[in-house]
C-alpha cells in the first residue's frame, strides 16, 4: 500500500506542469524515502530528475517500492481540478492498476473529490549519471532566469551561456539579429533571494537549443532560485531546490565538431 498526503496540491501540480511540454509518460517511483521521477525526452536531449522526500508530505506510507506509470497529460487533467491549497492524498495498492487522487478543500471540509487514474506500464531505463564536479555555478532568481530565456528565445533558436568569474552572459543570434543579457555577480544585502551568485573556477561557455532551455524555465514557480552548473563539453545541470527535495534538468549541449 502506498499513501502520501500533501498539504498543498499545488506542489505536485507545479511539478507536473513543469514537465508537460517535453515528457509524455513518466514513472513516479515511490519508496520509503519518498517519490522520485526520472525521464528523458524523445529526442534524448533533456533529462528531468525529481525527488520529493518523505518530509515533503504531511503523512507518508510506502510498504513496498512501486513505480506509478502515468501519462502526464491525463495526470494534469486531474490535478487541474484542484484548488491550489487543497489537501491531496495519493493512494495505490501494491498490485493495483490505479492511482487514486483525493482532494480535500481546506476552506470547505464538506467537499471531497476523488479521481482514479489508470496506471501505465512504462518501459523506461534509468540512466547512470556520473558524479560530476562543475567548474562554474551560477545561482540566480528563477524569475530572472525565466525572463532571460523567454526574451532571448525570440531572437534565435540557440542560446549560449557564458560564465566567467565576474559575471554570466546569455547570448542568442538569429535571422533578425542578436541579443545578450549580462548579469554581474552581486549580493543584495538582506535580499538573498535576489542575489546573483557566481562561483567559477574556470570560465565555461556552452550552447543550447533554446526550446529545451525554455522547458527548464517552466519549473520557476517551484522555487525562488535556480542554479546553473556547467563544465566544458558536458550537459548543464539546472537545479531547483525544493523544501524537501529537488527538481532538476540535465540538458545536452551543442558542441562544435
Amino acid at each position: 500500500m502506498f499513501e502520501a498526503k500533501l498539504n498543498e496540491a499545488s506542489v505536485f501540480k507545479k511539478i507536473v506542469e513543469s514537465v508537460k511540454d517535453g515528457f509524455k509518460n513518466c514513472n513516479f517511483d515511490c519508496s520509503e524515502e519518498g517519490i522520485s521521477m526520472e525521464s528523458m525526452d524523445d529526442a534524448h536531449i533533456a533529462l528531468v530528475s525529481m525527488k520529493l522526500g518523505v518530509e515533503a508530505f504531511s503523512s507518508y506510507r510506502c510498504d513496498r517500492s512501486i513505480s506509478l506509470g502515468l501519462n502526464i497529460e491525463s495526470l494534469l487533467k486531474v490535478l487541474r481540478t484542484a484548488n491550489n491549497n487543497d489537501v491531496l492524498t495519493m493512494r495505490a495498492e501494491d498490485d493495483g492498476d490505479l492511482l487514486t487522487l483525493v482532494f480535500e478543500d481546506s476552506s470547505n471540509p464538506d467537499r471531497i473529490s476523488e479521481y482514479n487514474l489508470k496506471l501505465l506500464n512504462i518501459d523506461q531505463e534509468h540512466m547512470s549519471i556520473p558524479e560530476q564536479e562543475y567548474t562554474a555555478t551560477v545561482t540566480l532568481p528563477s524569475s530572472e532566469y525565466q525572463r532571460i530565456i523567454r526574451d532571448l528565445t525570440q531572437l534565435g533558436d540557440s542560446i549560449t551561456i557564458d560564465a566567467a568569474k565576474d559575471g554570466v552572459r546569455f547570448t542568442a543570434e538569429g535571422d533578425i539579429g542578436s541579443g545578450s543579457v549580462s548579469l554581474k555577480a552581486n549580493t543584495n544585502v538582506g535580499e538573498d533571494e535576489k542575489s546573483i551568485d557566481i562561483a567559477v573556477e574556470e570560465p565555461v561557455a556552452l550552447g543550447f537549443n533554446s526550446k529545451y532551455l525554455t522547458q527548464t524555465c517552466k519549473a520557476a514557480p517551484l522555487a525562488p532560485r535556480v542554479s546553473l552548473n556547467m563544465c566544458k563539453r558536458i550537459p548543464i545541470f539546472i537545479s531547483y531546490k525544493l523544501q524537501a527535495g529537488h527538481f532538476s534538468f540535465f540538458l545536452a549541449p551543442q558542441i562544435s565538431e
Partner: peptide, 14 residues
C-alpha cells in the same frame, strides 16, 4: 557549425 549532442553521449543506461 555546432552539433546537438545527445544525452546518450554522456549517460549510459543503468
Amino acid at each position: 557549425t555546432k552539433k546537438q549532442k545527445s544525452m546518450m553521449d554522456f549517460f549510459k543506461p543503468k
